[in-house]
Design a binder for these strands. Structure first.
Lengths: 241, 241
DNA sequence: CAGTGGTCTAGACCACTCC
DNA sequence: GAGTGGTCTAGACCACTGA
């Protein structure tokens, strides 16, 4: 087995790219153990020390997880990336996921803004989804989601019959798209008339607006999403080091 | 030179503790280069590889910074921890710091809540500071800050004549307290009558409330701070991986 | 027990910075 | 050129997991 990328790059970078490629290509899937570090190193003709260093850096980034005595596993990063980390949990049990309701699901031509966010040509075919998340019929989150139709065409028939609480695992299992890294931008806003009906609160109530650009392992944009959380439901904790 | 901590712990943990102790004790100060990794390893009678691993982990955490060919330096983590990362910059130049105005500075007996946050006994002596931050006389941030009087007594005379834009470097230089790690909790709130006057906006205007607990390298609580940002000035970007 | 990751060492060679 | 960190190797030994 040979490494593909530019031989002028440091070896650990090239090995890292190779491992990420295998994860992207689903050669190794979430929950499955990778080969041992010694066998991986032998396969790529590098030293075990270098392989360890690469694996450690991917563990640091949350791509892999290691368990002493058991093995190295691909992380399913879905909890970490859930929008629910911005929502204050009360009422029902701590670990219950809120019910997802798809309010609208259509295919459109991308406007200039959406094309730009998704790195597509203006007019390209995109999927738009309007979705609410609720606990005991109290809506805590509303999402407006845009996806490339080309990459997510299999999603449409799937969502005719299903309304799963988490979408990212579905992107993975149905469309073969594994999400990796997101950038969230938070601002305070007021609720639009459209979403006010969904939340059942007055128009212009105070809320948080969370704009997310989600990337895959290759760094390409996978999804653009704008979410709204009512003021009294918003809560966010962050550690700075 | 011998390591102090429990010899049953892994060596890299003990070395890490030793390095952090030296930073806490100001044996190495911000901006100054540490000895080379080979000399450090020799001094502590460990291999260079292990020393490298420890240093790398502290770089990862933001405690140290390395520059190829120059050396390893203690990070001055003040930009990273500034509350201004929650404030949207417009108007004036990008890199100008807003003017700080101390509105109130007193010594009090800690209430139960404040004592609990600062890990002090109720009734212990604490410093309370009420401070505003403004660009061109537009207030963008108001802070309510509590500190242990015992640890920060030197701050009071200093702040009689100075109103520095950043406090953490002052904690370091005047009181010998080096901040390290903070936990911020964000919620949406409305502006109190007291702060409404400072911001010159109506009472109950929408704002972000940011509660911060700041720790030092030893993990002890250094400061408790509650800050408010008006809705139109709040902006926050976060990357999830 | 075999297989996995975790710890630690010793040393070679390269690349960058500053004098 | 001297000193720094960056890359890479080779191998020993330990600790945890599961059959």
């Amino acid at each position: 087995m040979a490494l593909i990328t530019d031989a002028r790059l440091p070896l650990h970078i090239r090995v890292r790219d190779e491992l990420l490629r295998r994860i992207s290509d689903r050669i190794w899937t979430a929950g499955e153990a990778l080969p041992g570090e010694d066998r991986l190193a032998a396969e790529l003709s590098i030293s075990v020390g270098t392989m360890r260093k690469v694996i450690q850096s991917l563990v640091q980034e949350g791509v892999l997880e290691r368990v002493h005595g058991k093995g190295t596993f691909v992380t399913s990063a879905f909890e970490r990336t859930s929008m629910l980390r911005f929502v204050r949990f009360r009422g029902p049990g701590e670990n219950t996921l809120p019910k997802a309701t798809i309010l609208q699901l259509t295919t459109k031509k991308a406007s200039g803004e959406i094309a730009s966010k998704l790195q597509l040509k203006p007019g390209a075919s995109v999927i738009y989804m309007h979705r609410s998340r609720s606990y005991d019929d109290e809506v805590v989150l509303v999402e407006h989601i845009w996806l490339s139709h080309k990459r997510f065409s299999k999603l449409l028939p799937y969502l005719q019959t299903e309304s799963p609480p988490l979408l990212y695992p579905v992107y993975d299992s149905v469309c073969g798209v594994l999400v990796h890294r997101a950038i969230d931008e938070l601002e305070m806003d007021s609720i639009s008339s459209e979403d006010a009906k969904v939340f059942d609160v007055p128009v212009n109530s105070s809320c948080m607006r969370i704009e997310r650009v989600m990337h895959d392992h290759a760094g390409d944009v996978v999804e653009w999403r704008v979410s709204f959380v009512p003021a009294n439901r918003f809560h966010y904790t962050v550690e700075i080091r």
